[in-house]
Nucleic acid binder design. Structure first.
Length: 748
DNA sequence: AAGATAGTCGTTTTT
DNA sequence: CGACTATCTT
């Protein structure tokens, strides 16, 4: 019994959670408490000991990454891939249901998924059509409104406007937007969920089928569920179905996008009693880090209540640094990273976390100057990049001519003399005919409804799509994509442009072909183009070379959720930054900021650094915000405050400032003239270290020794071979340019 | 039909 | 301040 691989490795709480027979189980899983393990083991236990079949189980997550991990771990533990088990994201599962029951859901068989970019375009068009002033109703806000309503399960007819013109207009826009979607057979992300919820309500026999199939529903990150998601789950589980929900109210950080922390807070009451298991033993962090996390989060009201503990070591104290300004703060961080690397830490073991993306800039510059390779999370994902979306829109048109969003996007890309007025004409005609733009375009071409130039251009475009569709009919997906990328003219378009950007676009298009081929290989039996397009829409593609490159990780606190790093720098801890200015005066929002801080602290395994800048340049103005209240909430006994006096004098130049910092906290301003940002060399923002590494005789950041100049760090390499110029920052004499063949450098 | 330029705005992100 | 957009200009 003790050798049972399923249960023997679990602690008591985990064991209880895995083997509970309660029809409603709430697992309150603290950070680093083994929640995925519990989910995975519970699923396997249900199959083995409660004789469920894989098809009786539905496991829901938020991200594709989490779903993939769970699926894989279940497979490993069961030794067979759990084929019939549904493991996926809310959206993925909703999508699957809608594909299977499209008719009952009131959708066309070939409906397309609209990503937020497409959605915004459709909304802009709707605004134009209704002649709505886009300064009073900014498209982004309209989008937010629509998605919000959908997340709350509301259709336009459910919303009251109480005679308010603004609200009335929003509802109008929602309605017309929805009509546009219907006309083009388009379904946005929120619609996937709302539709499948409506499917449950509208078709009891379908609901009954799934209720009897899914005897057990398990949900991960339950604190992030919104209203529709929760309603959908509740209806599906019904009276009979078992529910296991796993989550942590203290890690609810997505309230601003519709997540309802109440879902987890009131779950027990809501379902008429649930067994609650708390996973409080933490396997990730030192007790010092946990004590800090507990101290912060305990200030929040209305918690379900949980306190992390560990059997592990106390570890090092937390280091707190008060930067003189944001540049100084960044320099401190890059310097400490440098030492950590010297002490044998891997770059990928180190993360810098911040509240908002704008903060990454200074950090990047400091890392670049210190020649430390880094990687920034965020920005556009693979399938969202403009060139990829253009290619995808051509593919979309191939399988669905009526996809207006796709039509509009590429009808004049590459430019083929179809100006705004021609497109407007097509749009109007479509509107009048109550048909898609494709139909309208056909009509216009057949009836000579356009000026000669536009007429020819449009005819050519329509012909191109038809030809491509026919000629690639029997080809593999990969070949099809390759041909579309070529013949659409997209490849030539980017080839004619110059610069790194265009080069990257060409490479991305090539990578798209690779991605399609990969999809073909991995997918079950001969996937169709439509399958791939769904995949592209639903998985915007992590395609960011994963942890292949060993680099310091920079990301927002939100993106860091779920991850862990041996060394964490949590920076920008100032009032107004973190907690953000917009949140600090509203209790609920402040509480969410505090949870975000809790999330940040609990990412650290061994060593945590906290830092802030006494003065920060923000929007072109110097601000003195003062240290974040979150710092004060951590017991001082857990922290060491670094106060390095500016003692080292160095030659005045624009070189890296080495080990001298501006004054510590309490020191007046202006005392550290050496750290003024004006002396900072301007570094090209887009230049990433990884690209510079190619063919360089030395790795950037490589430590080298020179007979005369002593030890230094390689900053840059120009050229290769014996005449290559090596740019080195020497500890003693500052920056030097040396020629490879004479330098006689020794690697250290 | 692309390029300059004025104007705006300024958390957090997944699907 | 600087990134992004919308509008104007050539």
């Amino acid at each position: 019994m003790t050798q049972d691989p399923l249960l023997s490795i679990l602690n008591d709480a985990q064991h209880q959670a895995v083997t509970s027979d309660a029809p409603r189980l709430l697992v309150l899983a603290g950070a680093g408490s083994g929640k995925t393990r519990v989910l995975v083991h519970r699923i396997v236990w249900l199959i083995r000991d409660r004789k469920l079949t894989p098809s009786n189980i539905l496991a829901v997550t938020f991200t594709n990454k989490a779903a993939a991990e769970m699926r894989e771990r279940i497979g490993t533990l069961m030794r067979v891939p759990p084929g019939a088990m549904w493991v996926g994201t809310f959206h993925g599962i909703a999508h699957r249901l809608l594909r299977m029951h499209w008719k009952d859901a009131g959708l066309p068989e070939n409906f397309q998924i609209l990503d937020s970019d497409d959605q915004l375009r459709v909304i802009k068009r709707t605004l134009k059509y209704l002649n709505v002033d886009d300064s009073r109703w900014p498209p982004k806000q309209v989008q937010w409104f629509i998605n919000n309503q959908k997340d709350e399960g509301r259709r336009p007819e459910h919303i009251e406007h109480f005679g308010d013109l603004h609200q009335k207009t929003l509802i109008d826009l929602y309605q017309h937007y929805q009509q546009a979607c219907t006309r083009g057979g388009m379904v946005d992300f929120a619609e996937l969920l709302l539709r499948s919820h409506e499917l449950w309500l509208k078709k009891p026999e379908i609901l009954a089928h799934y209720q009897s199939r899914f005897k057990h529903v398990l949900v991960d990150e339950f604190q992030d569920t919104n209203t529709v998601q929760y309603a959908w789950l509740r209806v599906l589980a019904g009276q009979q179905g078992h529910m296991t929900i796993v989550g942590d109210d203290d890690q609810s950080i997505y309230g601003w996008r519709g997540a309802k922390i109440e879902n987890i807070q009131h779950f027990g009451k809501d379902v008429g009693g649930a067994e609650i298991v708390k996973l409080e033993q933490n396997y990730r962090s030192t007790s010092t880090i946990l004590a800090a996390a507990n101290a912060v989060i305990t200030r929040n009201p209305d918690r379900l209540g949980k306190e992390l503990w560990t059997n592990g070591e106390e570890g090092e104290p937390i280091t707190l640094y008060a930067g003189f300004n944001e540049v100084d703060e960044a320099r401190f961080i890059s310097d400490r990273i440098d030492s950590a690397l010297l002490n044998g830490k891997q770059r990928k073991d180190i993360a810098i976390l911040y509240r908002s993306n704008a903060q990454s800039r200074v950090l990047e510059e400091a890392l670049l100057r210190a020649a430390i390779p880094y990687r920034i999370y965020g920005g556009h994902r693979f399938f969202e990049r403009a060139e990829i979306k253009n290619a995808l829109c051509y593919l979309r048109l191939l399988c669905h001519r009526d996809d207006d969003a796709a039509f509009e996007r590429v009808v004049n890309v590459p430019a083929r003399a179809l100006g705004d007025k021609s497109v407007e004409k097509i749009r109007e005609t479509a509107r009048a005919m109550n048909h898609s733009m494709w139909e309208a375009a056909l009509y216009l071409v057949n009836n000579k409804g356009l000026a000669a130039r536009a007429h020819n251009a449009l005819r050519q475009f329509l012909g191109l799509i038809e030809t491509l569709a026919q000629e690639t009919l029997d080809l593999s997906l990969g070949e099809q994509t390759e041909i579309v990328v070529e013949r659409s003219g997209l490849m030539d378009l980017y080839k004619s442009e110059k610069g790194e950007k265009a080069q990257a676009r060409i490479e991305n298009l090539q990578e798209l072909v690779t991605a399609v081929r990969q999809f073909e290989i991995e997918g079950e039996q001969a996937p169709t183009l439509a399958n791939f397009l769904d995949h592209a829409a639903l998985e915007s593609g992590d395609k960011q070379s994963e942890d292949a490159d060993n680099a310091v990780q920079l990301m927002t606190l939100h993106s860091a959720k779920g991850l862990e790093f041996p060394v964490v720098f949590l920076c920008g801890l100032e009032e107004g930054m973190f907690p953000s200015a917009q949140s600090k005066d509203e209790p609920d929002r402040l509480a969410e900021e505090r949870r975000l801080c809790y999330v940040g602290i609990t990412r650290a395994m061994k060593k945590l650094y906290l830092s802030y800048a006494e003065s920060r340049r923000l929007y072109g103005q110097e601000k003195m915000n003062g240290p974040s209240r979150f710092i004060r909430e951590i017991p001082p006994t857990l922290m060491d405050e670094v106060r390095i006096k500016s003692t080292i004098t160095r030659p005045v130049s624009n070189t890296y400032a080495g080990n001298s910092y501006g004054g510590g906290s309490g020191t007046g301003f202006g005392s550290g003239s050496s750290t003024r940002s004006g002396t900072t060399a301007k570094l090209p923002r887009k230049k990433r270290l990884r690209e510079d590494l190619i063919d360089a005789p030395y790795r950037l950041g490589q430590r080298v020794r020179h007979k005369k100049f002593g030890d230094g760090v390689v900053l840059d390499c120009e050229g290769s071979g014996p005449n290559a110029q090596i740019h080195i920052n020497f500890a003693d004499v500052g920056e030097k340019r040396l020629v490879m063949q004479y330098a006689k450098l020794e690697e250290i």
